[in-house]
Design a protein around this nucleic acid. Structure first.
Lengths: 217, 217
DNA sequence: GTCTATAGCCTGATAGAC
DNA sequence: GTCTATCAGGCTATAGAC
């Protein structure tokens, strides 16, 4: 009673916020621990009981936050996609449009993936056959493709590449370059960061071949 | 007694052969079923009980053939590597040495991987953290790299590529091209065969860029 | 939102009879 | 080489008290 002088007869307006904020923190903590477990047991080896153990609660408590194991996978998928899209956008916006922006974005992409390898596996390989990302989680994936296509179009407009680059084929070719560099780095040199090791430093060399594939007029 | 007129007092010499042949057939069948289970449950979801169920025996019986679950993974790994190396060699030998041979080998490589996707995942990604291939199984991997390096050296000797191609870097660059084409095809268009879809047909286009990366004198 | 308790499964692996 | 029986655990998910 005495603690709410401004609105004594109403529910304090900040209470629900604090509760939902605390709840959101718990959710983030669960996702972080889940990624930790996946790192040790494989993407497919995620166990809610193990997450509960590390969180210091009993397994049933987790079901107040996520209705099922697959919902946890989905949340990790969505959070990962959003995070990667964010670092990619940030890196691209710091560069002039066109090839430079594209390379900067893909570079940030690679860096993030090597820093979050199991999440990257969940995003780009399909190690859990029974998990299908929800439509909204998957929508991020389309947005990533759109961003790359737009950057390629900018490069064509700037005369850096020929018109063939701003096509479905061009997008696929670029995606093969980044996916190849990444998958080789992740599988063969998991300890390395982006830019070190035998594979990821070759990515710029690959991108440098784009003008040879799509020569500007 | 009456059934062995030629050698009545000796162990029939073909008996042990037949037994071990039968045993080998059972082993192959177990491996085939294990791959089937992995296809449905994920590479990490292999269960010996499920394999036993499909084979029509009780789980303990499998331990007469493999001492542990990891031994089954290892056998699948080794058999897969050997098979892929074989189709690769066969394809390369049918071509003149150099770039043509290299491309034919990697093409066969891609075809085999798309036909055996879960085995390919076991070979090239690391979806089962607790599984480490045995040294002899892993040796095949080194042989594959050697073959590619030799083909690159042939290409340099034939004047198709500049000398920089016959290096560690050249091998890594080529491996990125094939790994990228493959991983994009496997992850995004799992139903397709090699040479169809949006990604794998771009592999020749990528290889065609090699002379631009390592221009011959 | 946390807990206990539990249902109803699954697993890898071993012992020992036949 | 097959089986039965079993150990010793694991898991997801639910019910219901507090």
């Amino acid at each position: 009673m005495a603690s709410s002088p401004a609105a004594p007869d109403a529910t304090p307006p900040d209470r629900p916020d604090r509760r939902s904020r605390r709840r959101q923190e718990t959710i983030e903590e669960i996702l972080d621990l889940a990624v930790e477990v996946m790192t040790e047991a494989g993407v497919n080896g995620l166990s809610l009981s193990e997450v509960a153990r590390r969180l210091g609660v009993q397994p049933p408590s987790l079901y107040k936050y996520f209705p099922s194991l697959m919902a946890v996978y989905d949340a990790i998928f969505e959070r990962g996609m959003a995070e990667m899209l964010a670092v990619m956008h940030e890196a691209m916006d710091a560069q002039p449009p066109g090839l430079q922006s594209l390379v900067a974005g893909l570079d940030a992409n690679g860096r993030w993936c090597l820093e979050h390898p199991v999440v990257a596996q969940l995003l780009f390989w399909r190690p859990v056959p029974s998990f299908e990302p929800s439509p909204q989680a998957f929508a991020f994936s389309g947005e990533m493709v759109d961003v790359q296509r737009a950057a390629l179009a900018d490069a064509v407009a700037a005369g850096e590449l020929g018109p063939g680059a701003a096509t479905e084929e061009g997008v696929c070719l670029v995606s093969i370059m980044i996916a190849g560099s990444l998958s080789q780095a992740m599988a063969n040199e998991p300890g390395n960061t982006w830019g070190t090791g035998r594979f990821s430093p070759l990515f710029p060399k690959l991108v440098a071949l784009l003008p040879a594939a799509y020569p500007p007029d």
